[in-house]
Design a protein around this nucleic acid. Structure first.
Lengths: 247, 247
DNA sequence: CAGTGGTCTAGACCACCTT
DNA sequence: AGGTGGTCTAGACCACTGC
């Protein structure tokens, strides 16, 4: 008896989709364990009575999802399960606040052109005494401060930066409108509140803060360097992940 | 003059790949701005002298990457640039330590069956007084404590949990060997050190700690609930993101 | 050498949208 | 009715692998 991909004949799903699930079923049931060699494309094509192109599309999709490994000239194999890389998305603070039904507002503390600290200069790969635009903003949720944003921006990237009203548009949104970042990195730390932060966030010195430091690239140049300081008691990051690997 | 996809005739890249880059070029150069309607598949097929199936594969790939929006019966449009969702991966602590060239070791403080706190019971959706397996471990990097792992495990998922030697295999690795999690969620907070943590991590009460709370699923059941406590001064999370959206 | 996956084509049918 | 994307097929050629 030839195996059938049609476990649910009335299923209107595309054929390649059903082939994917047919293969996934074999893997998840354990019938095809890690490292097991799958039937070749022509073989599956004959077995299921489906065109090779359709089989190919299904397997290509599974390979993209790292469920199987394909080696030209050799064969196709069930991939080893890999740890789901737990992931946290750093959301836009304004959206995050609004999504919780709270009111987002901003208070601009400083907006100027200045020579930044060496940490920032080095982090952005700028000459020691090169000036950058800088904005210091407090983000409030229902009038309670939840984030202190300390941001430096490459003047040549955003020449009109100093003319913006950052109580109305977030620096993130403004810079995004010039050009969306192509890349970014970030560092998350727990740090005791520094004295400078306290008056803006209405917290005590030493109180645990969640600090996110982030750089954004547009092409090859670093366009912005920023630090987000959140009172630990009023802000946290969360996320949910479907397994990236197998199963 | 008909446009050519062959800007680099000696380029050995597959045709669909060159078609993708041809389209991306139009978008990134601004010639086709956000919302611009792309030529239809048959149209591009004629324009470039390439089979419709190949055009389709290229466009399907671009749609998967959210570079274009496709509406059956209507057309294909340049997608709006979306904020790259900055993302942080929560790495396996042992790998993380080793990748920095340090020596990872563990000290088991507790391994037992117990009724957990209500927070854990509720978090795992268990009856109020149901027992769970629990392990409390300190992870050390070069003999310096960097993580306190407080983990609860569903007994029916890992019946032999209490018989393991968790100074040799991490709970994460052991549970993974039973069945890789299919899903997980997580919460990252900055919290002042509680008294219980201090002796294990060699820190002072109130010192800022980076706390990650995580649950893992296998199928529909929550198999494990864990809290990772890191001294803020000795541990941080980092990551890098290529833009998820456009350009 | 035969077998594998990677690619490409021409043509076809379909459901859906717009006119 | 004509256009659009979605899918599927049969057949073809290729580079590469392993025997």
């Amino acid at each position: 008896m030839s195996p059938s991909v049609d476990q649910f004949p009335q299923d209107p799903a595309p054929l390649y989709d059903r082939v994917e699930r047919y293969i996934l079923g074999k893997i998840q049931s354990g019938e095809w364990g890690t490292g097991h060699r799958l039937p070749s494309e022509p073989e599956l094509s004959r077995m299921l009575g489906i065109s090779r192109m359709t089989i190919n599309r299904a397997m290509r999709e599974l390979a993209r999802r790292n469920m199987i490994d394909r080696i030209p000239g050799v064969g196709t194999f069930v991939a080893a399960a890999k740890p789901a890389s737990a992931v946290v998305e750093i959301q836009n603070i304004a959206d995050h606040i609004r999504s919780r039904g709270e009111v987002h507002s901003m208070r601009v503390i400083d907006l100027c052109s200045m020579v930044p600290s060496q940490e920032v200069s080095v982090g952005m790969g700028r000459p020691r005494k090169a000036k950058l635009y800088r904005v210091l903003i407090v983000h409030l949720a229902n009038n309670v401060p939840v984030q202190l944003e300390d941001r430096y921006v490459l003047p040549s990237f955003a020449p009109s930066f100093l003319a913006q009203d950052f109580s109305k548009i977030t620096p993130t949104a403004y810079l995004f409108s010039i050009a969306p970042p192509t890349e970014s990195d970030h560092l998350i730390e727990a740090i005791g509140a520094k004295k400078v932060w306290c008056r803006h966030l209405a917290i005590e010195v030493g109180e645990p803060c969640l600090v996110v430091t982030r750089r954004t690239w547009v092409g090859d140049t670093i366009t912005s360097y920023m630090t987000f300081v959140h009172p630990g008691s009023r802000y946290s990051l969360s996320g949910r992940t479907r397994s990236g690997g197998q199963q």
